[in-house]
């Protein structure tokens, strides 16, 4: 255990991983509430183009992921129309275009620079290989997300409940939608850095989806999403580290363990909530029986 914690790559992985867990849990709850899971997934996938470009131009991968996620967010907001079906369509179109660029940049990475493994680390992450210099930018991104979501907490929830009711309280659903996409972009960038652009969705949607089933209040859902995400990331990092010894010198990737753990937690939450429902219903009917004369 001491060897585990004293290793520098492990420390960096734990810090950046925790950042990704916290930020994705928070924004994930709002994303799931608004039925925006597909948009979240698309932003994450498209951000891979930015990650790939960052290798090419030698800029920070965090900036690469973030820039591309924001461009995609604006694209979706610009193309996107009110109706859910048109929103999915706009999202799909932006997703396709973005992945095209990703293919190009990854190809150029391999042919024009000496970066081997760029594709794997952009798409699926390599948490143990993150440079220490990215710790502070990641923490800053997390603080920005917490500040913005904390500030606009109630308007965001009200908009998720019903855009008309929000408008009548003087909240603009349009601005809230844009704010949410921008914050989602920040979260996606940190997640993509940690477990890869393609797998970022798992961290964004999984813990939030599980927590929502277990909670009766938004704050409660955010709390449980954070617990689930942090547990998955910490356990995943530890298991990946230990897997070096399990598989005689061939450590499996962190992302794999994190994603599998999230999936397991989601299954558990589903079982838990259906058990809870059954129990509640039985509770209510037995109460009724008592009250009947």
């Amino acid at each position: 255990m001491f060897a585990f914690l004293s290793s520098q790559p492990v420390q960096t992985a734990l810090i950046v991983g925790s950042c990704a867990a916290l930020v994705s849990a928070l924004i994930g709850v709002f994303t799931v509430l608004r039925g925006n899971a597909f948009a979240g997934h698309a932003l994450a996938d498209v951000s891979s183009a930015g990650g790939a470009a960052s290798f090419l131009w030698g800029i920070s991968p965090l900036l690469g992921f973030l820039g591309m996620a924001w461009i995609a967010a604006f694209g979706m907001e610009f193309l996107g129309v009110r109706k859910a079906r048109e929103r999915d369509l706009a999202t799909g179109i932006v997703l396709g275009a973005g992945l095209g660029f990703s293919a190009l940049f990854l190809y150029l990475d391999v042919t024009t620079t000496s970066t081997t493994g760029a594709a794997v680390s952009v798409m699926f992450g390599s948490l143990f290989a993150i440079s220490r210099g990215l710790i502070w930018p990641a923490i800053l991104a997390v603080l920005a997300v917490f500040l913005l979501v904390g500030l606009f907490y109630r308007p965001l929830i009200l908009t998720a409940v019903d855009p008309d009711l929000a408008t009548l309280r003087g909240v603009s659903p349009r601005w809230m939608g844009l704010l949410q996409l921008l914050v989602l972009g920040l979260a996606v960038a940190v997640c993509a850095l940690a477990i890869g652009a393609v797998l970022a969705t798992a961290l964004l949607i999984g813990p939030a989806g599980a927590a929502i089933r277990l909670s009766r209040r938004p704050a409660q859902a955010i709390f449980w999403a954070m617990i689930i995400a942090l547990t998955a990331v910490w356990l995943g990092i530890w298991m990946a580290y230990e897997s070096y010894y399990w598989f005689s010198g061939n450590a499996w990737p962190v992302s794999f363990f994190v994603v599998v753990l999230i999936f397991l937690f989601y299954l558990l939450a589903m079982l838990g909530s259906s058990w809870q429902h059954k129990y509640q219903r039985r509770g209510i009917t037995s109460l009724r029986r008592l009250q009947e004369p």
Binding site: V29, L33, R154, P155, I157, L158, V161, L165, A166, R169, G170, V171, A211, I212, S215, R216, R217, P218, Q220, A221
Partner: peptide, 16 residues
């Protein structure tokens, strides 16, 4: 939706 009836009502008061 993780929102109780009383949370919905409160949003009518200070949701903005």
């Amino acid at each position: 939706l993780p929102l109780r009836t009383r949370d919905l009502v409160r949003l009518g008061l200070d949701g903005q």
